[in-house]
């Protein structure tokens, strides 16, 4: 009898130890962090990409006040830089850039303002971008004024390091699954190139 009881006890212990729940579940996707991360990347694909492209043209020795240049975001999304006036351009995708899974477009006005220290200040205004995937859409716009890029120059004993730093705020609104009203949003503020403030709201 003892061995039967022992066998059953061992089996029962096994059943208990087998566990029942292996994952607690929950939504790891629609979080403030994900919205912020998505928003940050949209800023990188718009203002930063346009200003970087213009600076690269300058470094290459190109006369950027000449009419029209082609550039790309991360070497993938083509966009056009069109001169509007002296030291003023429009940077925009040619309609929507589309892959099998998403569509992306942006437009903005970029101005160059020479500074006393010899460095240029770049100002992006009317920044607008839209990314659409299936029925979901996200829009980006600058808020509270223009996005301004200033050079930060640091002098070291053996080198001089200059960094173009972004200042300004964006608001990214999310319209999931064909919704006409914004469900979630994220506001992201840059100060001297770093994110100084970021807040996201997840709607119900």
């Amino acid at each position: 009898m003892k061995k039967y009881i022992l066998s059953l006890l061992v089996a029962a212990a096994g059943l208990l130890l087998a566990g029942c729940t292996i994952d607690e579940g929950g939504n790891p996707y629609r979080t403030s962090y994900k919205l912020q991360s998505f928003s940050y990347r949209m800023t990188q694909r718009t203002s930063v990409a346009a200003v970087s492209a213009l600076n690269q043209l300058l470094l290459d020795g190109t006369d950027i006040n000449r009419e029209g240049f082609n550039a790309s975001v991360d070497g993938e999304i083509p966009f056009r830089i069109t001169r509007k006036s002296q030291d003023c351009w429009e940077a925009a995708t040619d309609g929507e850039y589309a892959t099998a899974s998403l569509r992306f477009s942006f437009s903005m006005t970029v101005r160059r303002e020479p500074q006393e220290d010899g460095h240029d200040r770049w100002t992006c205004s009317d920044v607008e971008a839209t990314q659409t995937e299936d029925q979901s859409r996200a829009t980006l716009a600058n808020i509270g004024g223009d996005i301004v890029f200033d050079w930060d120059t640091r002098v070291y004993p053996t080198l001089v390091e200059s960094t173009l730093e972004q200042n300004g705020s964006y608001r990214v609104e999310f319209f999931p699954r064909g919704m006409t009203g914004c469900l979630d949003w994220c506001e992201i503020t840059f100060s001297k190139g770093d994110i100084s403030n970021c807040r996201a709201s997840i709607g119900r």
Binding site: T21, Y29, E133, R137
Partner: peptide, 27 residues
């Protein structure tokens, strides 16, 4: 597969369905 580094969090992921607790019988 059809994306690039900067797509690493996409709208379709943010708004995809999510799972509740996953349970198992054990083997």
């Amino acid at each position: 597969d059809d994306s690039y580094d900067w797509y690493d969090n996409r709208l379709r992921d943010i708004y995809s369905d999510y799972n509740g607790p996953t349970r198992t019988t054990g083997a």
